[in-house]
Design a protein around this nucleic acid. Structure first.
Lengths: 148, 148
DNA sequence: ACGATTTAAATCGCACACGATTAAATCTAG
DNA sequence: CTAGATTTAATCGTGTGCGATTTAAATCGT
């Protein structure tokens, strides 16, 4: 009924809580994002571009912690949906700059309510949500230079 | 340089911290799991089975928050690697019971050190890691009945 | 100046995740 | 007793994630 090694018990593992909570949040966002024809990772990339338009794929990768093997197809889908354009830099043809289209910029207004609506979907207190975010960011900062 | 709507700023979004931290943890586990030919979700499923062998796909789904569309192929891969067997229940042929093989049981011993090794890879204090897990579990509990 | 190295993005292959549907077995209401 | 509803897995299609490799462009070292 229970693992031979207590340290392997699922309930005791932070890794599983993180994995499950992350997917749960994605599921909470999905109905809202679907109204704008967005997936969750596409929304993350748009958040980055709304904050700073005209980034290279590499920059988006650094901010999202995603590599080109994930970003290239994702950005092509955003381009197909007319939310961004992809332009090669003339001074360095290796670099691919990503710009929001008018439609992409307009989408920011439509998405402005999403954070508030998401807050409304959880019964967790603002205080605890803030604590959670602080701890996660601390963890990320401790590890952000280890893998790319 | 900055989003029109401050509430859309990436650094302010809990959702992104969670998404990034979860993937970071997966990346930390990967080198350890690769030694045993396991992926991270496969490890999660094995943690469940080590705790309670002989579950139905449905039970594993409830504990992992994964559905059969993810679990069926994952379990088939575990079966191919001779870590589990899949048996239809005679009394109800719809049900598929999953049992650990000897190899699957033996793997528990080999994985016993993984939690400790993972702890050694982070500089975050035990206290903060515990706080983090507590908050995540609280969040999960508040939402676990909303989607499956 | 020019081959070797480095860099940026794209490509490839595999394994998730998950919404939606399907298929088969079981249950249930009349 | 049986038609319809329910349950359980499996299947299908799309979109990530990511290690590894490839391609092309720029830079470096001699």
């Amino acid at each position: 009924m229970s693992a031979k090694f207590p340290e392997l018990n699922l309930d005791k593992q932070l890794c599983f809580s993180l994995y499950a909570a992350s997917r749960q949040v994605t599921r909470l966002y999905q109905p809202l994002l679907k109204q704008h024809d967005l997936t969750y990772p596409q929304y993350i990339v748009l958040l980055i571009l709304w904050q700073n338009d005209g980034l290279m794929v590499k920059d988006i990768g650094q901010k999202s912690q995603l590599k080109s093997n994930t970003l290239t197809p994702l950005l092509k889908r955003l381009e197909q949906n007319d939310l961004v354009t992809r332009k090669r830099a003339k001074e360095d043809e290796r670099q691919c700059y990503i710009y929001l289209t008018d439609k992409g910029k307009a989408l920011e207004n439509e998405c402005a309510c999403i954070p508030m609506e998401m807050l409304g979907q959880t019964d967790m207190s603002m205080d605890k949500l803030f604590q959670l975010k602080t701890l996660l960011d601390e963890f990320l900062q401790l590890h952000e230079n280890h893998g790319g």
